[in-house]
C-alpha cells in the first residue's frame, strides 16, 4: 500500500525529464528523493499525484493505478507542492476549512493528526495566508495536505530556502507523522537531510543513480577519502586540482575531501606534495564518506 513505480519515462519536447525510473516505497516508510534542481523530482511527483501522465511505464499509489484509478488516489494522498499554492486571500483557518470541506471532512475530525503543527500557527488563524512568513506558510501547507488523513504524503522540496533551524523542526514533524502510519515521499536538494530518511533514491538528470538506506549508500563509496586542510584554502584547491594523483578534490566546510587515482596512495604522499608547494599547517586525515561524497562520485 505504499508506492510502486515501474519504468516511468516522461519527455517534454526534446528534454528527457525522467528516464526509466523504477522504485518502491514500502508502507509506512519515509523515503527521500535526493537531487538538485532539474533532476526530475517535480515531474515524478506530478505523475504520482495524477496531475501528469507519464509517456511510458506504470505506477501505483496506495494500491491504486495512477491513470485508471486517479480519483481514488486523489482521496488518499496529501500533496505539498514546491511552490506555495494555498489561497493567499483566505485566512489560515479559511484555507484549512476549505480543504477539509473539499475532502468531505472537518477540522475537528482529524484535528489529532495536525494538532502538533497547527497549534504553532493557530494564534494567527485570522491572518491571510499571503501575509504569513515562510516558515508559517510551510506549516499551513502541511496542515492542509494532512487534513483528510491521507495514506500517502507527497512533499516536494518542503525545506528549500528554509533556514537550518526550521528545517530541523520540519524533519522532527515528519518523523512524528511517520509514526501515525503515513507513508511519506519527500524530495530535497539538501544532502544532509538524506540521513534522516529510511531509504533514499539519488536522482539527477532524470535518472536514478542509487537506491538504498543512507548507511548502505555511504558505505558503498568506492575509495578512501582524506580530509585535507592547510593555511591557504584557495591555493590548496588550485594545487590539488593540478596534482597528478587527484581523482577528486571537493571543498567540504573547512576541509577539502580528497580521493586519489592511485590504489596504494598514502597520506604522506600528499603531505610531501603540499610541503613542496609551500603549504603550512598541513592536515591530512582519513574520513568517512557522506551522502554528498557519494552523490558527486556517482554523477561525475
Amino acid at each position: 500500500m505504499g508506492i510502486k513505480v515501474i519504468n516511468i519515462s516522461k519527455t517534454y519536447d526534446k528534454i528527457k525529464a525522467l528516464e526509466n525510473i523504477s522504485f518502491e516505497v514500502k508502507p509506512g516508510e519515509l523515503f527521500g528523493l535526493i537531487g538538485p534542481d532539474g533532476a526530475g523530482k517535480t515531474t515524478l511527483f506530478r505523475i504520482l499525484t495524477t496531475l501528469l501522465i507519464a509517456d511510458t511505464g506504470e505506477a501505483t499509489v496506495a494500491g491504486y493505478d495512477v491513470v485508471q484509478e486517479y480519483k481514488s488516489i486523489r482521496n488518499h494522498v496529501g500533496y505539498m507542492p514546491g511552490r506555495f499554492s494555498l489561497y493567499q486571500d483566505l485566512t489560515v483557518e479559511e484555507n484549512l476549512n476549505f480543504f477539509a470541506t473539499i475532502f468531505g471532512t472537518t477540522i475537528e475530525e482529524n484535528y489529532d493528526l495536525i494538532k502538533d503543527i497547527y497549534v504553532q500557527i493557530e494564534p494567527f488563524k485570522n491572518r491571510r495566508a499571503g501575509k504569513l512568513s515562510g516558515g508559517m506558510k510551510q506549516k499551513l501547507a502541511l496542515s492542509c495536505a494532512l487534513i483528510h488523513k491521507p495514506k500517502v504524503l507527497f512533499l516536494d522540496e518542503p525545506t528549500t530556502g528554509v533556514d537550518p533551524v526550521s528545517r530541523k523542526e520540519f524533519w522532527e514533524m515528519l518523523k512524528r507523522l511517520q509514526k501515525k502510519n503515513i507513508t511519506i515521499l519527500v524530495s530535497t536538494p539538501y544532502m544532509d537531510e538524506a540521513e534522516l530518511c529510511d531509504r533514499i533514491a539519488l536522482i539527477t538528470d532524470g535518472k536514478i543513480l542509487e537506491i538504498d538506506t543512507p548507511e548502505a549508500i555511504k558505505s558503498s563509496f568506492p575509495k578512501k577519502i582524506y580530509r585535507v586542510k592547510s593555511s591557504g584554502t584557495f591555493q590548496l584547491i588550485q594545487d590539488l586540482g593540478a596534482y597528478d594523483k587527484t581523482h577528486s578534490a571537493y571543498p567540504f566546510g573547512e576541509y577539502i575531501h580528497f580521493t586519489s587515482t592511485s590504489t596504494d596512495f598514502k597520506a604522506k604522499d600528499l603531505v610531501d606534495f603540499l610541503k613542496e608547494k609551500n603549504h603550512s599547517n598541513i592536515e591530512v586525515m582519513e574520513t568517512d564518506p557522506t551522502i554528498e561524497d557519494t552523490f558527486m562520485e556517482l554523477s561525475k
Binding site: P36, D37, A39, T160, P189, T204, Y250, E292, F295, M296
Partner: peptide, 8 residues
C-alpha cells in the same frame, strides 16, 4: 546556490 547540484 539554493537548489544547485553539489558539484556546480
Amino acid at each position: 546556490t539554493g537548489g544547485v547540484d553539489p558539484i556546480t
